[in-house]
């Protein structure tokens, strides 16, 4: 679950790092599903704000020299 690792929220991360209960059960399939969904949600949200024509947009971002 690479995405779960990548996009774990701050709250989930604290749970993982600060409350390492010995013998705690591994995350259930449902929990993993939630994280994956949350990662998908993030990408979906970002899909919605990305400029529409990526190739043209990045081509048009031309700067003059700076320091």
């Amino acid at each position: 679950m690479a995405q779960e690792r990548i996009f774990g929220t701050g709250a989930q991360r604290r749970e993982e790092t600060e409350l390492p209960e010995p013998g705690a059960p591994a995350p259930t399939a449902a929990q993993s599903q939630t994280s994956a969904t949350s990662a998908d949600d993030l990408l979906a949200e970002i899909d919605g704000v990305l400029e529409s024509n990526a190739e043209e947009f990045v081509k048009g971002f031309v700067q003059k020299g700076g320091q």
């Binding site: 990045v58 971002f61 031309v62 700067q63 003059k64 020299g65 700076g66 320091q67």
Partner: peptide, 15 residues
């Protein structure tokens, strides 16, 4: 944009 390059040979600074 708070970045440092246009990826077209130009860079500008954040000193």
């Amino acid at each position: 944009y708070k970045n440092n390059t246009d990826n077209k040979s130009v860079s500008y600074g954040a000193h």
